[in-house]
């Protein structure tokens, strides 16, 4: 339980909680990036350099920017007028609280077996590459297919429909 972990955990929670609760959607996206960057820093702290940088590249460089683009294109940057009942807000928050309570209880009571801190594990980029090309080659190919399908599908979905029928 180091001070670095506490700081990064605090920024992660602050960022993500703000992302889920702020009114202005653009502020939400910016807070989200703060949370995700601190999460990437947590990965770095855990020794997973490659995953941490991938996290920044994918989430800050692509997902957050895409979300910002979507916000701009759907004109939802202006704070929406709240309508309807707020009963679902309360119940949703309650469900989340219950889920956290259950997960927290499970973590609290179940991780005694893994308390021993082993030596710092190494995850050099080369080994990740070798593993991707040997043991994990089938998942890699499937991910490639999935990403290609997502690229084409997203393009077609977002395309103007008048142009598609032409």
């Amino acid at each position: 339980m180091t001070i670095t972990f506490l700081l990064l955990a605090a920024t992660t929670i602050t960022g993500t909680a703000a992302a889920m609760s702020l009114k202005n959607l653009v502020h939400c996206v910016l807070a989200l990036t703060l949370g995700l960057v601190s999460l990437a820093a947590l990965y770095l702290q855990l020794g997973a350099q490659f995953v941490g940088f991938t996290q920044i590249l994918v989430y800050v460089g692509a997902v957050a920017i895409l979300a910002a683009f979507a916000i701009m294109m759907t004109r939802s940057a202006e704070p929406a007028v709240l309508t309807g009942s707020s009963s679902f807000r309360v119940s949703g928050a309650l469900i989340a609280l219950v889920v956290f309570a259950v997960l927290g209880w499970a973590v609290w009571s179940g991780t005694g077996a893994l308390a021993v801190l082993g030596p710092e594990p190494e995850a050099p980029v080369n080994e990740i590459g070798v593993a991707l090309m040997h043991r994990f080659v089938l998942p890699l190919e499937i991910i490639g297919l999935l990403l290609t399908a997502a690229l084409i599908g997203a393009g077609i979905l977002a395309m103007d429909e008048t142009r598609r029928t032409k």
């Binding site: 992660t12 889920m20 679902f88 928050a93 609280l97 956290f100 997960l103 927290g104």
Partner: peptide
């Protein structure tokens, strides 16, 4: 777990 709950709360209430 906390992160998951925050995400869940956001997905349910927003």
């Amino acid at each position: 777990a906390l992160l998951f709950s925050i995400g869940l709360a956001g997905a349910l209430t927003r």
